[in-house]
Simulated assay, not measured.
Amino acid sequence: MKKRLRIIAGVNPSEGGPIEGIRQQAPFHAAAGIEEHVVSLDPPDAPWVQNFPLTVFGLGEPLGSVPEWKRRLPWRRYGYRPALLPWLKAHVRDYDVVTVHGLWNYSTMAARLALVGSGVPYLAQTHGMLDPWFKHNFPVKAAGKQAFWLFNEGPLLNNAGFVLFTTEEEKILARESFGPYRVNERVIAYGTSDPGPFKPEHAEAFRAAAPKLKKPYLLFLSRVHPKKGCDLLIDAFADVCRDRDDLDLVMAGPASDEYLAELKAQAAQKGIGDRIHWPGLLRGDAKWGAFHQAEAFVMPSHQENFGIVVAEAMACSRPVLITNKVNIWREVTASGGGLAENDDLAGTARCLAAFLEMPPEARALMGARAREAFLRHFQVSQSAKDVNAACLDAIASRT
């Protein structure tokens, strides 16, 4: 295997885990002699395209060239970009194997039209987008997705060499979503790079991002989105920490203006508005400073097929407080590196209270065990090996 193409909707780092996984695996694949390219729906002149560590073919229109009214059209919101399908049909045979990332957008429709029946070996990675949580919580959208499944996502996945999952839990849950479901399932390791030891520049960068923070803190770091249980965390923090003013909460990550305003209003109503800090998207030294100095990492998510930020927190020896809807919760709790509860207010409050009642030495031991579990389960080097093995087997099955 010499050349691999990855198809994904976008490479903007604010989109979360899937693109971060590609970015972190890139050096290991390069060291194995694999040339990787990415094709996306991004504007070709977007800074995140220009700065990505792999060659990216951004096939959207240049920044600022599409008026606001046009961007709101349904097919534009779905991701339709007319240049993608002709490009794929012209170029997929230049690669030994193709990996399709994500579902329910035009990049996957173009991938299906270009790949199914082409003879080109390909794999698909759903990144949790077949979790039945969406089906149960958004039944109207789920009905529409079932229609899409019949003519697009289903044929794409059912004809893939492998559909890749990052945990057994994700694989089993995916079977409950849409049908007919006849995919060739494969579980691969997934993880992140080891950030290494804490450095003074990490602390300086994080202080600059959150200048009003003076107390110990709990850290949420992810997309600020309803799926992540942000409202639960604010209410639980208010309930559990109301009488202890020695602890603040940092809510770090990108958010829509509307949802951010809603959460800030909720915090103010609960009387803790001045104890929550909103530094936005953290990268590099500022992100590692936030992780390393937190008392614990908290993410009461309603659905998470892996949770790359959970692994990052564990790499920094931080206890992780999550829900049993984060699909690595069994590994977390079995290792002693964190706690997991139900994804509701009572569960989130129990999780916070249980951790805060632990003596300092028990918290330190939990952090050390989190680090051990990261080294054992969640290093990106093993993920890169598993991805390559799956690609080689998909290629072999076509020859």
Rank of each mutant, 00 (worst) to 15 (best):
Q266M: 09
D245C: 00
R207H: 12
A252C: 10
N159Q: 13
L218R: 01
V250T: 05
Y181C: 13
Y259Q: 11
A203C: 06
R182V: 05
P279N: 02
L218D: 07
G229F: 00
G271P: 13
G144P: 01
H202L: 13
A189T: 11
V250N: 03
S177F: 08
P279D: 04
I272R: 00
R175E: 11
C241K: 03
C230L: 14
E262M: 09
K227V: 15
G191I: 11
E176M: 12
L218C: 04
I234C: 01
A236D: 02
A236H: 10
R275M: 02
H225T: 14
G271M: 01
A208C: 03
P180T: 04
F220T: 11
Q266S: 03
L164Q: 10
A189C: 07
C241Q: 02
A160G: 05
L150G: 00
K214H: 11
I276T: 01
A147V: 15
L263V: 10
Y259N: 11
F206H: 06
A238K: 14
L263A: 01
H277V: 04
Y181I: 07
D245G: 03
N158E: 09
G273E: 14
A205I: 14
M251N: 03
A268V: 02
A210I: 08
A160W: 09
L164E: 11
K199M: 14
L221C: 08
N152V: 02
A210Q: 06
L156P: 10
R182Y: 12
A267T: 01
F237T: 01
K264C: 03
V240G: 03
G154S: 04
Y190G: 04
P226R: 14
P195C: 04
P200D: 10
A203G: 11
L260I: 06
V187T: 10
V187E: 12
T167G: 08
F165T: 12
Q146S: 09
K145P: 03
V163N: 02
